[in-house]
């Protein structure tokens, strides 16, 4: 199972699946374990992926909001 989320390309505005963006962009790092970019399937622009800690915080607060 995969955890799907959507993101918007900062260049062309296309909405795409984060996982799809990850799959097409994974080979450019020399050090540091990957540039963690999401490549837009429409225009090829490399969008930065939200740092995990921020995503976690966002989800935490999102859930809090939903509960409220």
């Amino acid at each position: 199972m995969s955890d799907r989320a959507l993101t918007t390309c900062g260049y062309c505005g296309h909405r795409f699946d984060v996982e799809e963006g990850r799959r097409s962009c994974h080979a450019c790092s020399l050090v540091g374990g990957g540039c963690r970019s999401l490549r837009c399937p429409r225009c090829g622009y490399e969008n930065p992926e939200e740092p995990r800690a921020l995503g976690w915080l966002r989800r935490l607060f999102g859930r809090e909001k939903e509960r409220a």
């Binding site: 062309c12 296309h14 540039c35 969008n47 930065p48």
Partner: peptide, 29 residues
């Protein structure tokens, strides 16, 4: 050829997240 997305006001949250993500990658590199 490209379809132009609409111009929009930058959203502070988006801008900060992207900036932090790029800085994190850059410094890891």
């Amino acid at each position: 050829y490209m379809e132009l997305p609409p111009l929009r006001w930058p959203r502070l949250g988006n801008v900060l997240v992207k900036t932090l993500a790029r800085m994190k990658w850059y410094f890891a590199e």
